[in-house]
């Protein structure tokens, strides 16, 4: 028992010692002249989300170099129950602007900044209304940000050009991802209106993506997966199922095409990051969030994977798809 107490005391001492260390660090950055601290928070490590973060950091770097701002990075690494603590830590540290990437991060930030004058800029949130703000133009509560959604109609139009014989689509996605559920709902609305049949298969983890796709083989003519983080992390086995069964695979992110998907009209994450950073810099320059309504990014990257197309013996009509990058 004594030992347990000793361990506990040691832990608490270490923490309080750490506290003092942290404070000195904070003082140091103030000494360097940076009077505004921007924190960039990720919910987990993931190619698309990391691309946004890197793009934001790159855009903020010159301002950081001249000492006007101080940039802090945080990552919840999938530990959602730690998100409130991370956000409270940032607010307690005197962070001025929190850039929260993805929905759960933005919600935790919103709860933590309530009653303070910390500003929140969210990024990569597919449906900010009503999850974060009441309307895209009402950004008076110190909260604004950048929203994105994939152009579902363009993806189906592309499918109509590349594989016109595809009549039934198989939707493979993770129903616990907000962005996926939103985009799948939009895809369903589109298909219902256009008279396209569809079937669904849920993949709750990266390990289940290929199995989910396999379960649809024989029932569908094409696969469709939006910007689903789970599927994006399991593109290799997913694409293998698609190619082995000669099923074209349409996706909602360029990284998913690079990893084996057939084609995508997806969000340009670098551009998304740049727009987010620009918005944060407006706030650094003294603008209010009310002056910066939510921006919906509509810069898309269009990309087709040539080797996948070849494996599926699909010909790419260059005249119709001139704006597409061939990978």
């Amino acid at each position: 028992m004594k030992k347990k107490i000793l361990v506990l005391i040691a832990l608490i001492t270490a923490i309080s010692a750490g506290c003092t260390g942290g404070q000195t660090q904070g003082g140091g950055s103030e000494g360097s002249g940076a009077d505004i601290t921007i924190a960039i928070v990720l919910p987990m490590e993931h190619p698309s989300l990391a691309e946004i973060r890197d793009s934001i950091a790159l855009k903020l770097a010159p301002i950081q170099e001249i000492g006007r701002i101080n940039v802090v990075h945080k990552n919840a690494n999938g530990e959602f129950s730690a998100l409130p603590s991370i956000m409270q830590g940032l607010v307690a540290d005197g962070t001025d602007i929190i850039i929260a990437i993805a929905t759960p991060t933005a919600q935790a930030a919103k709860a933590a900044i309530e009653g303070t004058d910390v500003k929140l800029v969210f990024s990569a949130v597919s449906n900010p209304v009503p999850l974060i703000v009441d309307s895209l133009t009402d950004t008076s509560a110190n909260i604004t940000g950048v929203s994105d959604f994939i152009p579902v109609d363009e993806i189906f139009a592309l499918a109509g050009i590349l594989t016109p014989e595809a009549k039934t689509f198989g939707f493979v996605y993770n129903p616990s991802e907000t962005n996926s559920v939103t985009n799948i709902q939009r895809a369903k609305d589109y298909c219902d209106a256009a008279g396209i049949a569809y079937k669904e298969a849920a993949a709750l983890s990266t390990a289940e993506v290929a199995t989910a796709a396999q379960s649809l083989v024989g029932q569908v003519d094409a696969f469709f997966t939006p910007d689903d983080n789970t599927a994006a992390s399991a593109m290799a086995p997913y694409a293998q199922v698609a190619i082995e069964n000669s099923i074209p695979l349409y996706v909602g992110a360029d990284s998913m095409v690079i990893d084996g998907g057939l084609a995508a009209v997806g969000i340009n994450y670098t551009r998304l990051g740049e727009i987010t950073a620009a918005m944060a810099l407006n706030l650094v320059d003294g603008q209010s969030t009310a002056q910066n309504p939510v921006i919906v990014v509509q810069d898309y990257s269009r990309i087709i994977n040539e080797s996948t197309a070849e494996a599926l013996s699909i010909e790419i009509p260059a005249d119709k798809l001139g704006s597409y990058i061939l990978y």
Binding site: G18, E79, I86
Partner: peptide, 22 residues
Amino acid sequence: VFYRIIIAYALKLEVLPTYGVK
């Protein structure tokens, strides 16, 4: 409460990365 305090300060001071919490 103690657990949360330990985790909050450990995260804030980056004593351990978030993926170290588990």
